[in-house]
Design a protein around this nucleic acid. Structure first.
Lengths: 219, 219
DNA sequence: GTCTATATGGGGATAGAC
DNA sequence: GTCTATCCCCATATAGAC
């Protein structure tokens, strides 16, 4: 039962929220602890009291939503494998389960979802090894499970080819949720980045085509 | 004719080389001007004399190789369009021209190529708008030209669908050249990241499959 | 648990001699 | 063009009162 007068949970959450928004906007290096604590309505000392360091706060920001998202992906994968026949779930179902929860996360929490997605999309290629490895740690189990499932759905691919194709898939996903406005910036506002279901549909079509591409050249 | 005693061109190049290596390793924010100038064998004042600011130096690092790479892509595109019949170059040729020069750049200059690719791969989603826009400026013409060429090779796609698929393509490419070690880290050293020609072949197969994926679901 | 005040270090940029 | 020395700002982290 939290003390209503000075609730530590609220402070911690406020710090996470503020850090999430500012890191999404300015990057880890660009979001100073000062700016974060000011936005959270508190101060430097509180952040260090609750998280110990700036890096630990950044890690907490990533883990907070990634953990439930990954749990959902694994739950959906389990369900699909239970329902499927001997050959396992088909490719389209797998791709949907792999990208859907990540991309769609923005729906229930419009702002936070977008910010979080941006942070994760960038974190994969971030220079700071601590942060990258923290992200990898959260993802490792899911990647292993999905690799096995995709291998079953794509038996004609060599293990090496499969890993490369998963790399490309993750890249397309990461880049899209990181919200590089490259295409938009160059062509004007043609793309509706709010229609998450539409984006998932388009991405699934593209990725299924790429993952299932024949090995001898495709014309 | 440069003065052999104190050659400004060498200083400028040394600064660019040092900045390239350090920014690739630590990111723009993590690479201090002090570290860059020390590595280049010079000092803070020289960097500001030659480039005016740290940001301008970072922009110069991006432009130095990106400009020739893009020029080559456009040259290859021109050649392919000259050779092709009325329907324009086929999809596989276009994808090869789009990703080949970028990925293969690392061959002639092994270290610098890798560093530069990492920087570009990250720059697309970088928080700093100055840097992002600088990259976009360099890429804008090529993107426009390639969009038109892809539209001709993929007449069955709506303009919106095409732009999204190009976004996914750029993502797969950017993520791969940025060298996210995600897959490697999770599966051990299974992937040979030195075999650039092999990577291009695999990427082209994947992207052709994705770009040409049918619109109604792919099973 | 929360705050103010401070310790300590590093950053980018510049002045001015050579 | 190049250097040394310096200005000034902002960062993270902590000490210690409440």
């Amino acid at each position: 039962m939290p003390d209503p007068i000075s609730d530590p949970i609220d402070t911690k959450q406020s710090l996470l929220d503020a850090a999430e928004a500012l890191i999404a906007e300015r990057g880890v290096a660009g979001a100073s602890l000062r700016a974060i604590t000011t936005r959270a309505g508190t101060n430097l000392a509180a952040a260090n009291y609750h998280f110990g360091s700036k890096k630990a706060l950044a890690r907490a920001v990533i883990a907070r939503h990634l953990r439930p998202i990954n749990a959902e992906r694994l739950r959906l994968l389990d369900a699909a494998e239970d329902e499927a026949d001997d050959r396992g779930p088909d490719l389209e179902s797998l791709v949907n389960i792999f990208v859907g929860p990540v991309v769609r996360f923005g729906r229930e929490m419009p702002d936070r979802g977008r910010h979080f997605a941006q942070i994760c999309g960038r974190a994969m290629t971030q220079p700071d090894p601590m942060l990258r490895e923290s992200l990898l740690g959260e993802l490792a189990e899911a990647i292993q499970r999905f690799t096995k499932a995709f291998a079953r759905a794509l038996p004609e691919l060599s293990p090496e080819e499969l890993l490369w194709r998963m790399q490309f898939m993750v890249g397309a996903m990461a880049h899209t949720i990181a919200g590089s406005q490259m295409i938009e910036a160059i062509h004007g506002d043609t793309l509706d980045t709010r229609d998450l279901d539409g984006i998932v549909e388009r991405m699934v079509r593209f990725l299924c085509g790429g993952l299932a591409a024949p090995m001898e050249g495709s014309r």
